[in-house]
Simulated assay, not measured.
Amino acid sequence: MPTVPAPPSPPQKISYCTTCKNRLWQLSDTLPDNLRRAEEAGDSEIVLVNYNSDDELDTWIRRFQHCIDRGILRYVHEQSEPFFHASKAKNLAHLAATGRYVVNLDADNFIGDTIPAWRALWAEEPDLLIRGFSPNADGRLDPGNGSYGRIGLPRAHFDALGGYDEQLLPMGCQDSDLVDRARAYGLHVVRVPQQVPFAIRNTDDEKVKHTGSPLSWLDMWHQNIERAQDNLRRGRLTVNHDRVPVKVLVNFTRWMTV
């Protein structure tokens, strides 16, 4: 008798993890399209962390209550931190996610039409770490074009690595540190290009505006790269062993510790 091919595996849920601290002016452009893409793809969610933003985000997001009700949007409100810290905020979004795969999606980034391609890669190699990027005209990656932080990996591996290193200063190098630790941990890393639309470009001053630090983005980056290099030298691939869980309000209705 002819061999009957096995039915295709159902798609695994992907969580796109976004943080916002007074970036509603960007999120108002990116979120509607990202929600549409997640809904069209199915088995996808946007996890949005309001990192104690004071730009009316909490009011504006209620127009997407229907997405919250249907599980397309998971809204996480951190209400105590006065200043933005990229690693801490990103960890909240990833730890509050419900998907098998977690993808960092900065508030100024668009998912675009990438979901089927990433899902196909994970179907073929489930433990893959994918780095999305948008190339310049010459095909090379520009770390300053806003697409550098699109990183997707299995949630189980994100947890094993301890997530983003919260010992880093608020901005700079947190994305490359995670990828380098993941590669040293044994994950295969691939780059996947994404054409426009991809991101709204920020200045370095905008990146550090709400961190509460007198340091420039470049100063933070220089100090953070030393910590990141030390992580690799010491074999410190898992970080945040003493991380204190944070209490957040989820979907306006219940408190959760993540």
Rank of each mutant, 00 (worst) to 15 (best):
G149M: 09
C173M: 12
I200T: 11
D204K: 14
A199E: 06
V190N: 02
K207W: 00
N136H: 03
A156D: 10
A184P: 01
P197H: 05
R181T: 06
A137K: 13
G235S: 04
G144K: 06
Q174R: 04
W217T: 00
V208D: 09
R183Q: 14
F158Q: 08
D180C: 13
P197A: 06
I200R: 12
N136G: 12
A228T: 00
H210W: 15
D159Q: 10
R233Y: 07
L215A: 12
H188D: 10
E226I: 11
D177Y: 00
H157F: 10
D175L: 04
R234Y: 03
A228R: 00
T238G: 02
D159I: 14
V190Q: 02
P170D: 02
S216V: 08
A182D: 01
H210M: 11
S216H: 06
I151H: 09
L218E: 13
G172R: 00
V239C: 05
K209F: 08
V208N: 06
S176Q: 09
P197W: 05
A199N: 06
L178K: 05
D180S: 14
D205T: 07
L168H: 01
E226K: 10
R181M: 07
S213D: 10
L153Y: 08
D177L: 02
G146L: 04
F198V: 03
Q195A: 15
M171H: 03
V190W: 01
F198D: 11
F158D: 08
H188V: 08
V192K: 04
R236V: 04
G152W: 03
A137P: 02
R183I: 03
D177R: 06
L237V: 03
N202C: 13
D219E: 15
A156C: 07
Y185L: 12
R181Q: 03
N224K: 11
R150Q: 15
T203L: 09
H157L: 09
V190A: 02
H188N: 08
P154A: 13
V189Q: 01
D138N: 06
L232A: 12
Y148G: 02
E206P: 05
D138P: 01
V196P: 14
V179W: 03
Y185T: 07
S176D: 08
D204L: 14
D204W: 10
R236G: 07
V196W: 14
